[in-house]
Amino acid sequence: QEELVKAFKALLKEEKFSSQGEIVAALQEQGFDNINQSKVSRMLTKFGAVRTRNAKMEMVYCLPAELGV
């Protein structure tokens, strides 16, 4: 569980995922086979993730800066 949270936060820091499906796929690539869209959705809510525009003006998920991840 701890490893999943770390990987999840690291992915969001990249600010390149525009959908929950993309986050699920990226986590599965890292070996988290039991991850699915509903789990990702709950984690996004739990950590207060928001959708914002990145440098390329794409809408992407990211974590609020005050979490200091």
Rank of each mutant, 00 (worst) to 15 (best):
F47K: 01
R42P: 01
Q37L: 13
S18E: 06
L11G: 01
Q28S: 08
Q20W: 06
K9C: 13
L63M: 07
E15L: 09
G68L: 09
Q37E: 14
K16E: 05
C62A: 14
Q37G: 09
M57D: 15
A65W: 09
F47E: 06
E58P: 03
S19I: 05
K13M: 14
K6R: 12
L63I: 09
E3H: 10
F17D: 01
N36Q: 05
N54C: 03
G21P: 08
E66A: 09
V50A: 07
T45K: 15
T45A: 12
P64A: 06
A7K: 06
M57G: 15
L27E: 00
S41K: 14
K56C: 03
Q30G: 06
S18F: 07
S19N: 09
A26I: 06
N36L: 04
K9Y: 14
C62M: 13
L4H: 01
F32P: 00
K39I: 15
L44W: 01
K13Q: 11
Q1D: 14
K13T: 08
L44M: 05
A49N: 03
V5F: 14
R51F: 13
G48H: 08
K16F: 05
R51T: 07
V40Y: 00
Q28V: 11
F8K: 00
A65Y: 10
E14C: 14
G21R: 14
N54F: 02
V5L: 12
K56A: 13
V60Y: 05
Q1E: 15
V69E: 15
K39R: 11
V69R: 09
A7T: 05
E58T: 05
N36G: 07
E15G: 08
L44N: 01
F17Y: 15
M57Q: 12
A65P: 15
I35E: 01
M59W: 15
E29L: 11
C62P: 01
E14L: 15
P64T: 05
V40T: 02
N34E: 10
Y61H: 02
N54A: 02
M43H: 01
L27V: 01
R53F: 09
S41V: 09
D33A: 14
G31N: 03
K46N: 11
Q1K: 11
E15Q: 10
